[in-house]
Write a protein that binds this DNA or RNA. Structure first.
Lengths: 231, 231
DNA sequence: GAAGACAGTGTCAGAACCTGTCAGTAGTGT
DNA sequence: ACACTACTGACAGGTTCTGACACTGTCTTC
């Protein structure tokens, strides 16, 4: 049996049971090594199939019938589709890819009636290749934020003055037409905002940082802007 | 992309459409040769997925239920959430409402693992009340586009000259930081682009218009911009 | 708190499988 | 008979997949 067929069978196998199944048991049923089962589980997981394992218990797939089926209203669908296009145009390559595959998944569960709706979109959001440089910056900063990695950056400020510093990227703020990074500046020991389009160079360092109650988006919004963080 | 993943994508792709798709079109979307598409179709068919082809028409899949329970990957989820926030900030009130309720529905089906992901968002997209005027314009134009209603508009052009005209709103184009309306101008008998922030007044008329092969977004993109409409 | 069991990951070489190419076939319309 | 489309067969070379084995991290037992 080849891999594709085996993955398909694995989904059927797990879905047909109410109890979990250990990797070893799966290996035996499928006639492959345990190592291969681990790889198969990972493959399914990466495709977004909600397969979950627990040590000592085994793997199972969450039964679909315990969930409310996802049914969107036309406005909800429209919002998702428009949002997805904005992401493709205004963020980074990886997120754009995520947006595309999320859209495929959403479209695949629509009723015919809604599919029709989805097809006649008045929205067009051009994806400009000239923004590819910005997309790269965006991607790097997103990774840095998510992994809480410090960043060494060369930045050009409003006065056209170049500076090199180490910053802790806390959050990415979307304004109409531009993104800024909220970061903690090690040099100044203070919050600073950086426009994405003013970075001359960016290096993700190996070193991590820790957000504290004194250094975080919520704290910045509270103490500097004077508003509660909506999350 | 490996075969297993591609087969999964193929199922989603076919399920996401109302109409059949030729092997050649599939090959192009997937980035593989046509021969491989034929093999993939056969593989799915052998696994018992009801995929059917008709010469000259293409392939399609009957009935659902063959889809494994579907959930999003972290990147897909991130894309949906960011997109939703952009919609709330940069479109109109109704669509924003749609975005919020869509988000609730999506969150309700997430696994614990994904919920955690969803909570630690680095993105913040402020919703500025000062844009409420723009939101109203946006909402009116969206309704006009969707219902294909003619619009009587007072518009201030680049030279600060005011004009009143009847237009057929065809599409809403999202640029970095601004929206423009592509419309057919009854006065000039030509396509015109209007910035949302330059409308002084907007009245949705009772009268409808009909898009034709000579007056449509696709035709505009083809004949004026010189590109194919991505849809 | 050391030893051991258990679940899962990293790596590697050889085997198996997959892909594109190209030639060929069946069916259909002219 | 010819052209055309949709599809299949065969094959070489390139990729990927698999199992073996060492290894990590966690939890349990004594």
């Amino acid at each position: 049996m080849n891999k594709a067929e085996r993955l398909f069978q694995l989904v059927l196998l797990l879905r047909s049971r109410r109890t979990a199944m250990t990797a070893e048991a799966i290996a035996e049923t499928m006639g492959v090594s345990v190592r291969t089962v681990y790889r198969d589980v990972q493959a399914l997981s990466l495709s977004g199939i909600p397969i979950e394992g627990e040590p000592g218990v085994g793997y199972m797939i969450r039964a679909a019938n315990h969930l409310p089926p996802l049914i969107f209203t036309p406005d909800e669908l429209q919002a998702l589709l428009v949002g997805n296009r904005m992401v493709q145009a205004f963020t980074d390559q990886d997120l754009a890819k995520g947006a595309r595959s999320a859209e495929l998944k959403i479209r695949s569960i629509l009723t015919d009636h809604l599919k029709q709706h989805a097809e006649q979109q008045p929205y067009r959001i051009p994806i400009l290749e000239s923004d590819d440089g910005l997309r790269e910056v965006h991607g790097k900063l997103r990774r840095a934020c998510e992994q809480r990695r410090k960043v060494r950056a060369i930045y050009l400020d409003e006065k056209q003055e170049k500076s090199e510093r180490t910053i802790w990227p806390l959050g990415m703020i979307g304004w109409t037409g531009k993104w800024t990074l909220l970061a903690w500046c090690e040099l100044r020991h203070a919050y600073r905002n950086f426009r994405f389009d003013r970075f001359e160079a960016l290096d993700l360092l190996e070193e991590n940082f820790r957000t504290t109650s004194d250094i975080s988006i919520a704290h910045y919004l509270q103490s500097v802007v004077g508003m509660r963080d909506p999350g």
